[in-house]
């Protein structure tokens, strides 16, 4: 028995492997889920012969990159939220990418002034309303109105998507007013914040609440899901604040790691991700709004109509992030 154990232990020593840094490869650290980006990577490999290696994690990618420092194998980072991009930038983990192809594809307000990060898609933080309520024109501010007491559902206030929304409220209304608003919303919650964005739509379907906060693309994805379609059928998707500043938007984005070992391949992948083909895939596969002008939205997303987006800069939203978090703690939003 002991012998077997020793043999097995020796296996460990020889198992150290899978170090990748060949020239025709590019390494991606992704906050985005593999099944969203993998179809695109496959297309990219097909066209260029460059292999894409991915590791996906929601938590701690920035720290892993920071700890790995100059020896990090990472070339590209993909994120689902503006604050992650800015965090990476603040920690000086990124490098500027000067590419006319990229600059030409992404509108200036959706990329960093110093070319360190770039948006790939935008998504709206919508308010879903129960069909039984009929047509409603809502502002985010309305969620605190007493008439919605016990009728609102949301995921954790501290989820990056909600924090960004609260940060935009801070930017528009200041800290004190935002706190008041948060207290009002909390007062109106039908249940403790829980689950994810889809779960809130499900809750409307179940009559547990009438209004829910959620990202735009989930609506499309639920409609295309066998089981979740009935949930989506129970709600209308609303673009908030259309009579005034416009709906809050967030972005998914990309950046090149400061010590990227495969810069040429990395640049090729970044340029591919803003190409018409890839942008079309973002639109179709994940129902997001492509950043590249001229790329069509998916027919379904298009059917939700035009909307006005809040033109608050992404950097401003990121700046108010910490205040937003502290306010969420202060009103004990999740408790």
């Amino acid at each position: 028995m002991l012998k077997k154990l020793i043999v097995a232990a020796a296996m460990l020593l020889t198992s150290v492997s899978t170090l990748v840094s060949a020239a025709d490869e590019v390494n991606v650290y992704s906050y985005r889920q593999p099944f969203l980006v993998e179809p695109m990577f496959n297309k990219f490999t097909e066209q260029t012969g460059i292999k894409v290696n991915v590791v996906f994690a929601k938590k701690g990618m920035a720290e892993r990159l920071a700890r790995e420092g100059q020896y990090s194998p990472a070339d590209i980072l993909l994120t689902t939220d503006i604050s992650r991009l800015i965090e990476l930038q603040d920690k000086k983990l990124l490098q500027a990418v000067n590419s006319q192809v990229i600059d030409g594809a992404i509108p200036a307000h959706l990329r960093d002034d110093n070319n360190q990060w770039f948006s790939l898609t935008t998504r709206v933080r919508n308010i879903y309303s129960a069909k039984r309520m009929g047509d409603v024109a809502l502002n985010y501010e309305d969620l605190a109105l007493p008439k919605y007491k016990g009728r609102i559902c949301t995921r954790s206030g501290k989820h990056p998507y909600n924090v960004a929304l609260v940060a935009s409220m801070v930017a528009h209304h200041g800290e004190a007013k935002t706190q008041e608003w948060l207290e009002g919303v909390k007062e109106n919650l039908a249940r403790k914040p829980q689950g994810n964005d889809r779960g809130q739509v499900q809750a409307i379907h179940q009559n547990l609440c009438d209004l829910a906060i959620g990202n735009s693309y989930y609506f499309g994805k639920m409609i295309n899901d066998e089981k979740q379609k009935v949930w989506a059928d129970a709600v209308n998707i609303n673009f908030p604040n259309q009579a005034n500043r416009g709906a809050h938007i967030n972005v998914s984005g990309m950046a090149m790691a400061k010590y990227a070992p495969n810069q040429t391949a990395a640049l090729a992948l970044m340029e591919f991700l803003v190409s018409e083909q890839a942008q079309q895939m973002y639109a179709e596969v994940n129902m997001e709004y492509p950043v590249r002008a001229g790329v069509k939205r998916s027919a379904l997303v298009d059917s939700w109509g035009e909307f006005t987006a809040d033109d608050l800069s992404l950097a401003t939203i990121a700046k108010h992030r910490k205040t937003a978090l502290m306010l969420l703690d202060k009103v004990q939003f999740d408790l």
């Binding site: 460990l12 198992s15 150290v16 492997s17």
Partner: peptide, 14 residues
């Protein structure tokens, strides 16, 4: 360059 032989491989996981 051997790369991250400890922190970047299965070694770290194990």
């Amino acid at each position: 360059r051997p790369g991250l032989v400890l922190s970047g491989t299965i070694f770290a996981v194990v």
